[in-house]
Design a protein around this nucleic acid. Structure first.
Length: 251
DNA sequence: GCGACAG
DNA sequence: ATCTTGTCGC
């Protein structure tokens, strides 16, 4: 099963410092959590927070940093969350942090956020910088109740977020053209909840959706900026490696 | 009722 | 997510 509460111990990574005024200074503000125990409570919480989602907004100009978040699992509900902050132009890492702990909820499609959010927030709190945009490994609006992990995290922090998932969860779509950059609408209940976006020629698409404070075009533009070489964004790839390492290091 | 079902 | 053998390709 699972337990609510703290996600365990967090550790900051070697933040890259710059001489003079530090453009990466600051801390992400992480809220206190009252975690649900049952699926019904969790859905009620999603319905309560859903109205707070903002689905408009363009990428900050200039866009300095982008964060990638991911979680790796070990046996017995153990997990490790990681956040990696990349320079938006060079995609070089400038900060990182991890947090090990226990899954905060059982895995239930549609309630995924309740499982990973506590650990992700702990990792974010250990960061020494405040990323301009947060990229989640999962969906935002492309969710049964339009409130996936990316929306949830965005609302809790009131920061710009987007979701980039490897497989669809909610919505129908036509296969986009085979070239990188092509996309097709993810439709659910007659509305566009996201976009199947081809990030590499001839490779299956990823599923991009709005999290908070950005519109779908901005989300897709960012997804393409983060995929100069592989199907998955560099943010996700870096975070994936980091959380696996953190899990292994934790024993 | 039956399938589908982020990670 | 994680468990896993082999296989195709750069």
């Amino acid at each position: 099963m699972s337990r609510p509460g703290p996600a365990g111990h967090a550790s900051a990574g070697p933040a890259v410092r710059r001489a003079g005024a530090d453009p990466y200074r600051g801390r992400v503000h992480v809220p206190e959590l009252a975690w649900p125990t049952t699926a019904a409570q969790a859905r009620a919480e999603q319905d309560r927070l859903r109205p707070l989602v903002r689905t408009t907004g363009s990428l900050p100009a200039p866009l300095r940093t982008v964060a990638g978040l991911d979680v790796a699992y070990g046996g017995d509900d153990r997990l490790a969350a990681a956040v990696v902050v990349l320079d938006a132009d060079t995609l070089a890492p400038v900060d990182q942090a991890t947090a090990v702990g226990v899954a905060a909820f059982d895995y239930v499609p549609g309630l995924f956020a309740f499982r990973e959010l506590p650990a992700l927030l702990a990792a974010l709190a250990a960061l020494s910088t405040v990323p301009d945009v947060l990229v989640c490994d999962g969906h935002g609006l492309a969710h049964p109740r339009r409130f996936g992990l990316a929306c949830h995290l965005g609302v809790l922090l009131d920061r710009p977020t987007i979701g980039i998932a490897k497989t669809p969860l909610s919505g129908r779509y036509e296969p986009p053209d085979p070239r990188r950059g092509a996309g097709s609408a993810l439709l659910a209940d007659g509305e566009v909840v996201g976009r199947a976006l081809r990030t590499r020629d001839g490779v299956k698409p990823v599923y991009v959706s709005v999290g908070h404070r950005l519109d779908l075009d901005a989300a897709c533009a960012l997804a393409l900026r983060l995929t100069p070489r592989y199907r998955l964004p560099e943010t996700t790839r870096r975070a994936d490696r980091l959380c696996r390492d953190a899990l292994a290091a934790a024993g």
